[in-house]
Amino acid sequence: MRPVDVARITGAVARLAEESNYRLDRGYVAYLEDALASEDSPDAQHVLEELLENARLAEGGSAPLCQDTGVAVVFFEIGQRVQLVDGDLASAVDAGVRRGYCGGYLRGSMVGDPLLRENTGDNTPAIVHVDLVPGDRVKIWFLPKGAGSENMSRSAMLRPADGRQGIIDFVVETVADAGASACPPLIIGVGLGGTFDFAPQLAKKALLRPLDTDNPAEHLAALERDILRAVNDLGIGAGGFGGRTTALDVRVQAHPCHIASLPVAVNLQCHAHRVGTVEI
């Protein structure tokens, strides 16, 4: 067994929380620059220019990219030969969120109870997903998820007969209904298969896929291209006043499912696509 002190996880989460909220990934900034170069609507061009300027200001440290610094969603892959020592995982993650959000001047956006709605003040607790995998490493992804796009996300239990076209139609309908509220241009995570509860997790995991990586399954890569084309045909555009680029990218993650089921989940991600990752 390889011992890993949970204090290292606290430190990593704190650093990722702060970094991801101030600095957009370089490759992702290039996506926005490409969208600006190909945009033919003056309104959408103006919005994209503002977003690029916003990214420069945030990286300079004046303020986070967006005031919605998100729910702290943390994904782990923990090697089976790792033994976490000196504390429990959930508390270590929350300590990291507390340190990163308070120290980084990020917003506390969590209420302790969905009906009583009192702010917890430090953005805890995090939403934590853990996969046990072979090996002796701990891999962490930090995804601060804003509510504007999260609120417009959806899932459905389609019929197997609805098939490929049914999936495309469902994604397009979700994006059309979201409109400007989800802060386009979007990254769209699509979860296919699994069960009622599992498909949305696949959709969220799809958002973690590194930029410029193709789906290894050719039929899913083709589906991603077709969804992207159909979504951009909507003409919603950056900011929602009309334009070419409603979505920058579509990522599909699939899983086996029941013979009678075709679960689909669409997790919309706003243009402030913030993901940080580290391996311990």
């Binding site: 503002e50 200001l57 990219l65 005031q67 804003g146 802060c183 929602g240 706003c270 243009h271």
Partner: peptide
């Protein structure tokens, strides 16, 4: 009136 969503650093200025 609509301000640009996600341009929080720019608008804060």
């Amino acid at each position: 009136l609509a301000a640009t969503g996600g341009a929080g650093a720019l608008l804060a200025d």
